[in-house]
Design a protein around this nucleic acid. Structure first.
Length: 523
DNA sequence: CTAGGGTTAG
């Protein structure tokens, strides 16, 4: 017997929309309980398809989907409907989307005008032009070549794959049906592949523009480097500025390093009484992190709390990063521990923050905790861990982490990982071991890496090797002032004033311009 | 039920 509550929900599910179905439950386990109730009652047979489809929507498309459960629901449906196939194609990973499509064709179900947008979108996510082109020919054969949704997905797919010629061809061939979305997609495509000027020409030729088109062009300029002023010009010209326009401009400033401008614009927005969206807040927090501006960051944090904005995953991660970079490890840990849901970036931000502030051991223990709780980790996690070991002189632990990365996680070391290792060994005085390590590296050593070694030689008094490496480095980058300083420091430490004078003359004669703020490892 | 803009780690 069904309880009244379950029966009511069952009736509602049969008639609700897709959007409503997504709010039907709070978690997958609640859905499973509900599903168990109705399958044991036997009442569900009357409307089996409707109910399964709605359950499928929730398990496949909700914020935290359970694709295994979706697959089970799908497999138990006696003959899955076109709608169910579409839902699976829409939810699955790119490769599986295609498999559902093939299975669909084998069951003699024809795709409809909803099927292709989902399918093509999976190709643009996986940058798969081969399958993309095949689907394109299916689209034409089956008569969906002038469906504006399908057309726009094709333009987007070719743009994402860097095939602007094809994208434009679709646009031109379908000129009778294209709309403001098609134009905007093309603008985004051209600016995304580095052709902002052409993007702007299309933007200027648009018969109609809406807020999204303006924001797309602003973002295109902001991400193209050296065009941030043009982005601002457009931002000032927008006829109707929405919250997303503000966040596009603020994130543009933040991403190109104009952090003061980003924060000023954020303050202006708040001053005008406009409620900042998550994107604007995250960009502003990121700007504070880059500026190492703790006070400003704390102001943003209090603003977030005042508005009772839940500690969203992205906002929380940005705060952890900001507090870590600004040196307030207690606050970073407080936010971190307070976050119910974390992802790789959250963990990585926390580990990097600990490492940066000299808490190598704590960074390591957080790294072990990640493994215990089964949190996903990636190559960037190890950059934090290794940097932590390096700053805290944890040579053995660093070497161990490096091995774990390669052997247990099959992560190919990047230049950054090698840099950390050389730094780790060099700082610990194991200069010869560091040199051997560099010799065995499969990648070409970065000049910054030699710099770390020269520094290590100076600290540990190995003048002969330091001089040799330092001279090598100076010839490798003769226009980099920092390289001469390293060599000078070696001679100064050894009190070889004549040689020091020679280096200074070399700098003068070669007209090397000083570039301030060059850190040893970054350049 | 479908398309374009908007955010975090090195």
């Amino acid at each position: 017997m069904l309880s009244a509550h379950i029966a009511r929900k069952l009736a509602w599910l049969q008639h609700c929309t897709v959007t409503q179905a997504l709010t039907a439950f709070t978690t997958i386990s609640e859905l499973k309980q509900f599903h168990a109730h109705i399958t044991t009652s036997g009442l569900h047979h009357h409307h089996h398809h409707f109910i399964t489809a709605k359950l499928l929507i929730f398990s496949a498309l909700s914020a935290s989907p359970d694709l295994n459960y979706a697959q089970t629901l799908f497999n138990h449906a006696p003959s899955p409907s076109l709608f169910m196939f579409n839902t699976m194609i829409r939810a699955e990973q790119p490769i599986n989307s295609l498999q559902f499509y093939i299975q669909m064709l084998r069951s003699s179900i024809s795709p409809d005008h909803f099927t292709f947008p989902f399918l093509i979108k999976s190709c643009s996510a996986s940058l798969d032009t081969v399958v993309g082109r095949q689907l394109h020919s299916h689209v034409l054969k089956l008569g969906f070549g002038f469906d504006v949704f399908v057309v726009n997905c094709l333009i987007d797919m070719y743009s994402h794959c860097g095939e602007m010629g094809c994208a434009r061809k679709v646009f031109v061939e379908c000129f009778d049906v294209v709309d403001v979305v098609s134009w905007t997609t093309l603008v985004t495509g051209y600016s995304g592949c580095g052709n902002v000027d052409l993007a702007r020409k299309f933007f200027d030729s648009m018969p109609v523009r809406n807020g999204v088109s303006w924001n797309a062009m602003i973002t295109g300029y902001a991400r193209s480097g050296f065009c941030i002023d043009k982005a601002r010009e457009l931002f000032d010209e927008i006829p109707e500025r929405n919250g997303e326009s503000w966040s596009a401009m603020i994130s543009g400033y933040s991403q190109c390093g104009m952090c003061v401008e980003a924060i000023c614009l954020f303050r202006e927005m708040v001053g005008l009484g406009i409620v900042p969206n998550v994107g604007a807040i995250v960009s502003a927090v990121s700007a504070c992190a880059q500026l190492r501006s703790l006070e400003e960051g704390m102001w943003l944090h209090s603003l977030i709390e005042e508005r009772e904005l839940k500690l969203n995953l992205t906002v929380g991660t940005a705060l952890v990063d900001m507090y870590g970079k600004c040196g307030s490890i207690e606050r970073a840990l407080f936010v971190f521990n307070d976050m119910p849901v974390k992802n790789v970036m959250t963990w990585n931000s926390m580990i990097a923050g600990l490492a940066l502030n000299g808490y190598g051991k704590q960074a390591l223990s957080l790294f072990w905790r990640m493994q215990i709780v089964g949190a996903p980790l990636n190559a960037i996690t190890f950059i934090g861990v290794l940097a932590g070991c390096s700053h805290s002189g944890l040579v053995y632990e660093g070497k161990r982490a490096f091995e774990v990365m390669i052997q247990e996680y099959q992560i190919e070391p990047q230049l950054e990982h090698y840099g950390c290792m050389v730094d780790l060994l060099g700082r610990a005085g194991l200069v010869q071991e560091a040199l051997d390590f560099v010799d065995k590296m499969p990648v070409k050593p970065h000049p910054g890496l030699w710099g770390a070694l020269v520094n290590a030689c100076r600290i540990h008094g190995d003048v002969k090797l330091g001089e040799e490496l330092g001279k090598h480095l100076v010839e490798l980058e003769p226009n980099h002032s920092g390289r001469y300083s390293l060599l000078s420091n070696i001679f100064a430490a050894a009190e070889r004033w004549d040689d020091l004078a020679t280096v200074r003359n070399l700098v003068k004669n070669r007209n090397v311009v000083k570039s301030p703020g060059n850190s040893i490892l970054k350049t």
